[in-house]
Design a protein around this nucleic acid. Structure first.
Length: 331
DNA sequence: GAACCTATCT
DNA sequence: CAGATAGGTT
């Protein structure tokens, strides 16, 4: 007998296979993470689209554990947080369907510019301009369709529960709840209704900065807004990091200073998140003062990664500087 | 009707 | 529990 014969129909998603999967995602870019395409890119003989889809589902929901992880995950550690879980599940359902997105501005370099809108809540302060806010795990973004088209005055809501991903994640670690209250959101004000530069926000520790203005010269496109985001996911040898540094896209400058973002330990269900400062404005260079770095604990073992990211804002350099106004939504 | 997606089953 | 499948949606 040859080994050509398949053992079972049940493919096991090994680290390696998953790695391939992740690679495919990377390759495809945020806009096209669909089972079919992933499958094609992966180009693994026996693999079917449905299998990929299934795996994708798991990953999106953060349900998937690598075989290796499973082993080490033999510890219970349940703290009666199941209720949380269910709660989020319900809302999850509500917003579960993917929005219809339009792909726009393909030339933006910033991959993680996705937007997904699940519901629109109006947000008092920012309603005037085109405001855009979002929250999502970069990691997750990888799995979803990105490149949304952010419609003008548009504000997605900040309720963490509106975001299925977040919900799920929240359930992952107990401490999350608090994070949610921090309103991880940010706003962007586009002078000209640009759709491009959406810097995605990150989940748990997003410090928002909204710059109101006087420091800018109105150049062709001025984006008065500071947003932060960053994340890194690394698993199975795949690291996708978004270090945004003076990225220039479509004529406008994206001055993002952020040092390394987050890290994700292959086992975790989490993505750390780091929030750097991205300043998008007419200025040519990133303002050093602007830099904000939220200390990144080595999140190697993170039962509750978020906890650690909770307070760092207190130590942000920027906090005392007046160069820019910062607004933190900490409660 | 294919591809997606979520939910549910095995 | 991981992965397959059902069944609804786009």
């Amino acid at each position: 007998m040859n080994k050509i014969v398949k053992r079972k129909n049940c493919t096991e998603w090994t680290e390696a296979l998953h790695a391939k999967f992740m690679e495919a995602l990377q390759l495809l870019g945020e806009g096209r993470c669909y089972p079919k395409e992933i499958l094609e890119v992966m180009n693994v003989p026996g693999l079917t689209r449905m299998q990929v889809a299934s795996h994708l589902q798991k990953c999106r929901r953060n349900d998937w554990r690598s075989p290796e992880e499973r082993k080490s995950l033999l510890r219970p550690l349940v703290q009666g947080s199941s209720s949380d879980f269910h709660e989020s599940r319900s809302s999850f359902k509500k917003f579960g369907t993917m929005p219809h997105l339009q792909i726009k501005e393909p030339n933006l370099n910033c991959n993680p510019n996705n937007t997904q809108r699940n519901s629109n809540h109006s947000f008092p302060n920012l309603s005037t301009n085109n405001t855009f806010a979002r929250e999502e795990s970069p990691f997750q973004q990888q799995f979803y369709r990105p490149q949304l088209h952010v419609q003008s005055p548009y504000l997605s809501n900040f309720n963490p529960f509106s975001n299925q991903f977040l919900s799920i994640q929240n359930t992952i670690s107990g401490g999350l709840q608090q994070q949610q209250q921090q309103r991880p959101l940010f706003g962007m004000l586009y002078s000209q209704g640009l759709q491009g530069p959406i810097i995605k926000n990150t989940n748990y520790r997003s410090d928002v900065m909204i710059n109101n203005g006087h420091h800018h010269t109105q150049s062709d496109y001025t984006l008065n807004s500071i947003v932060a985001q960053g994340a890194t996911y690394s698993g199975n040898g795949i690291v996708s990091s978004r270090n945004i540094r003076n990225e220039i896209s479509n004529g406008y400058n994206l001055n993002a200073s952020m040092d390394n973002v987050t890290s994700y330990s292959s086992n975790a269900t989490m993505y750390g998140t780091y929030v750097g400062n991205v300043a998008i404005n007419g200025l040519e260079e990133a303002n050093p003062n602007f830099q904000q770095y939220i200390g990144e604990p080595n999140i190697s073992n993170m039962n509750n990664p978020f906890q650690k990211l909770e307070t760092p804002s207190a130590s942000l350099h920027n906090e005392q500087d007046n160069d820019f106004d910062q607004v933190y939504y900490d409660d």
